[in-house]
Design a protein around this nucleic acid. Sequence first.
DNA 1: AGCATTTCTTAACTTAAGTGAACGAGTTAT
DNA 2: ATAACTCGTTCACTTAAGTTAAGAAATGCT
Lengths: 192, 192
Amino acid sequence: MKNILFDFISKYISLTEEEKNVLLSLDIFRSIKKGTILLKEGQKSKESYFVLKGCIRTYYVIEGEEKTTAFYTEMDALTPPCVINKKPSEYYISCSEDSILLISNSDMEEEVNSKFPKFDLMCKMLSEELLAKERIDFDEFKTSSPEQRYLNLIQKRPDLIQRVPQHQLASFLGIKPQSLSRLRARIVEKKS
Amino acid sequence: MKNILFDFISKYISLTEEEKNVLLSLDIFRSIKKGTILLKEGQKSKESYFVLKGCIRTYYVIEGEEKTTAFYTEMDALTPPCVINKKPSEYYISCSEDSILLISNSDMEEEVNSKFPKFDLMCKMLSEELLAKERIDFDEFKTSSPEQRYLNLIQKRPDLIQRVPQHQLASFLGIKPQSLSRLRARIVEKKS
DNA sequence: AGCATTTCTTAACTTAAGTGAACGAGTTAT
DNA sequence: ATAACTCGTTCACTTAAGTTAAGAAATGCT
């Protein structure tokens, strides 16, 4: 687990053994059971998540219905908007599988940053990269049909289709579960 | 113009007069004529944009058709993904109105950052904030219908509907221009 | 001013997504 | 073991978006 973390960090900055030890001493690894709700709508939070193993998902409850908007899997990082804008959360975060997460809070980050300014640099690079990715994803979503989005997902995140319930995938694709079922049947039909 | 920039920066960090002067000495203000293409598909670029006045838009050309995905207006900042991932750009950026932009390039930023580490901090805060906003926008897009998205746009960016052509708005909303026309007629119908 | 182009709207038709209901398979709880 | 849920799929029907085409209005060009 530690290696996954350090491999990830090394994509951005290099760490000395001492720095690695400081990070480990923070004791931020957590085993979380499937189904655990990490954040609820209306709550304020300072926690950020980094997925070492497993999957977490964000969802809104709109008119009593769950609307899943994102899945975060191995090597994905999530700082919920409520941590940044300091308002109550608009959405829920729940743990989709038994997972190992790195959970940090923003006070802790400030402390680490003051000791290792390098860390700020990594956070900057990471959030710039994530912003660029998010924009590309959003653009792809806007410019394609539900069917194209599904086919695109098969290419880019084939694991998701296996590990996540279809009705959650449906709202992730911006459609209803019935439409996803039909769309899948249509694709199979076309192939033959 | 200068004041707009410094007001914006002051939301994140405070600058001394000297630092302000260094920024101004970089000579990064540009007047750009409507229709100017700032970035083309396939190009590599190191330029970031900050809109002081006017509007720029990003669009893809897919099967010969323009697909507009974003508009950046006063006080909006845009660093295209190609600057971050160092690959050729997937999209075009064009100037929708006669505009005054602040155009910086990543080499220049590194130089400023090395002189004023504060600047790095601002970039980090800004990109974290923009990432949070982008995610919320994406979530709203996913969880609503074209009609809701249009009504939402009227609330959040009423100026856009006036200053931007309908067919560009349509693809920004993820639909065809004809559908936007129809949808608008439907809304007027409902009101009466 | 006159012509060409672009933009917006409307209409008729096609295609696909939303809705409501029903069913079987699989899971959970008691 | 059985009842209660959840989940995925299918069906029939409704609604809205995509498509193709045409025409009017606005804009740009020389």
